[in-house]
Design a binder for these strands. Structure first.
Lengths: 224, 224, 224, 224
DNA sequence: GATGAATGAGCCTTCATTCAT
DNA sequence: GATGAATGAAGGCTCATTCAT
């Protein structure tokens, strides 16, 4: 008969597993980002994580599961950001700008994940076949929640009147392009200024009332 | 150095090889689009193209080369579109809108390629490692040419003042998102109307002077 | 539209595959006999058959399928022997002795199979778990048919009155022990004499009326 | 050379080890019986025995050694039975029937071992390669001792005149088939009656003078 | 002394590439 | 020249064995 409170041994085990999960998923993010899912090898993930094959397989059941976990772990955190934005009182436009800020913060804290997401996102975004459906479950939910805020903004008259899901995709496309550009240049531009730039582009794209933009002065140049 | 006058036999050979190239690359586009590069198998490409493995390897030296050829073949055609836009006299803004129109036409004529490009583009767009550099050679050139038109537009005061390369990327991101959305919904919206919609989004994104937009009436909705 | 008559190419292919099947199954019989199913390696089967891994997997889908094919190929032939015995007119006792003769002939022609069967038979004979059920399908049918002849012999008053299925098992046990002993000693005893010996033991085991036996003179001795 | 007087600590250690041995071997019997040697996993043996891997490896040096120990442990006990039969005064026929009785008793007390023996016996019985020779050491001795009694019976004129080693094998085959059948049906037939049945079959097989048999009334039927 | 987590060699299986026909 | 069968290297995954706690 086991008490609902775990034994110390069990708690230790869970802590250990959690540490491995963390390290393995971080290594996986990097490898998946560089090679893509199929070309990534478990050996390399293990090497980068500093664990053996057996250890990986004691935490995850398969390569596929490693990928799903990597997507879901971050996905869940991001979904949380979106949900907070959705439930924020006040105008949708303000909530959305807050969300943009959260995104920048999150992705700049996890650049490997950003790269993986940029690379693999395309795979399941437009290939309903394969097991892509499963992988994208959280991400579909994220898009749905984003669309929710956008729909509210449309009704409030702040956002351009178009299919909210399309808006969500356009927003993601622009937003990720900017992030990728920023990361690619070593994130030399201070986060605060970068957020400002993203906001400007997002307003251009989504705001109903044309917004005066002076993008130039803060845009980092490719050839810098 | 080959003699400029080819033998009839040689001309026949080249014609034959050209036909194979064509069929193989079309099959490859479809398979790469569905599976990604690594998960795609040469046998499946051969099966879809209706040619044997030997034939594929008589035209291409490796799987990698098939991919490069697929990217370059279309890439060269697209580069041609861009170059025409660059060399077009008159305002850059007009030239760019013409380019947008050409793009829509081209991609809607080659939806398999679009899907492949959407899927694999991310791979070499943000993974400087691997042979990605090689693969992207034409595409870098395309981006450079696009940036050229955009730079001209900036100087003419038509486009928002930002790094032209970034503008090119943002434009591609938005443009491809719209295309993907269109294809995903079975291209039910007439090409003409779709072009109009793309133009409207592009203007929103790039034009310096705020442009009155009434996107709604032509935007196809996800749930249609 | 394909004609029901196969193309020459197709016939060639089938012939080739049949040859591989044959060689692979023979190699598999030997390896499974020596190592058992799990410890047998596909590499070794390939090496002994003189084919590569790829070739094996072009004929069989998995290691499991190689085993099943090996069991079923021989099993089907043996089932045929038993069915002929079942449908033979005249006394069951005579039919059964003919069957014994057929068995000896068959197994002595396929000693590797005999060894494999001796080794793996035990595995699925008493382990209903695993995929043993599938593997043994033909063999259960063989036992059932054997039991049929035996049941007829019981009704005719020739065989000892006991559960026919148990009789079938006892017969198999004795019969295979004799065969194994014979093979182990290099089959030095002429087949004709060996058949006589087997018949004598079978009569001892199954015949209702005690049969005068003078086994000694033909029994090959272990220490010969 | 150890001092004959062990320290109490040493005696405790040995007792502990003996307990582990016992539990591990019992678990091993079950697992080997179900999966076969190679497919059986040390982790499952450990789980079933309720001990850790380290404990298993503190008692045995390898998986192979666990199997050997399992075979030898029971083998030694069975050898003891046979030796008692060999050294029993009076007619060999009587001694042999006593042995049969002992066998039934022993195997019915250790059904897991019976199943393992049925399954793995075939492996080393007819595969002189591998380490099978080592594994079978005790069992060869058992067979030799059985043959000894049988040889005596032959000289006394009680048993059919054939190679005693062959007789021993035939006896084992029949005897194990009956046991397997009995166990398979849940040992519903009382042990006493079952012994009678086995004796009847053994007499049929080995006794020189034909023996009147009325097997039917006690044979449990498969379909009951 | 006991534990069971960690290791990594090894096996089944796939697929890019070659070559006999 | 075209075919597609054959090859075998490489990758995902398991499990016997070891060793830090």
């Amino acid at each position: 008969m086991k008490r609902p409170t775990k034994t110390p041994r069990e708690r230790l085990r869970q802590a250990r597993v959690a540490v491995y999960r963390q390290h393995i998923l971080e290594a996986a993010e990097a490898v998946f980002a560089e090679k893509g899912f199929t070309a990534a090898s478990m050996q390399e993930i293990g090497r980068r994580a500093g664990v053996s094959m057996g250890t990986i397989y004691s935490v995850f059941r398969s390569k596929e599961e490693v990928l799903q976990a990597a997507l879901e772990a971050r996905g869940a955190e991001i979904l949380e950001l979106v949900r907070r934005a959705v439930s924020r009182p006040g105008p949708a436009a303000v909530a959305f700008l807050d969300l943009v800020r959260d995104y920048v913060q999150y992705f700049s804290a996890h650049p490997h994940f950003l790269r993986m997401h940029l690379r693999l996102g395309a795979a399941w975004m437009h290939s309903p076949e394969n097991g892509a459906g499963k992988r994208a479950a959280v991400w579909a939910e994220i898009q749905r929640s984003q669309a929710e805020v956008l729909a509210r903004g449309i009704q409030e008259g702040s956002f351009v009147d178009a299919d909210p899901l399309l808006l969500a995709r356009l927003f993601s496309a622009v937003h990720q392009t900017l992030l990728a550009n920023w990361v690619e240049q070593g994130m030399k531009l201070p986060a605060e200024q970068f957020v400002g730039e993203v906001e400007r582009w997002v307003k251009r794209l989504l705001w109903r009332e044309p917004v005066a933009l002076a993008t130039r002065e803060v845009t980092s140049r490719q050839e810098d």
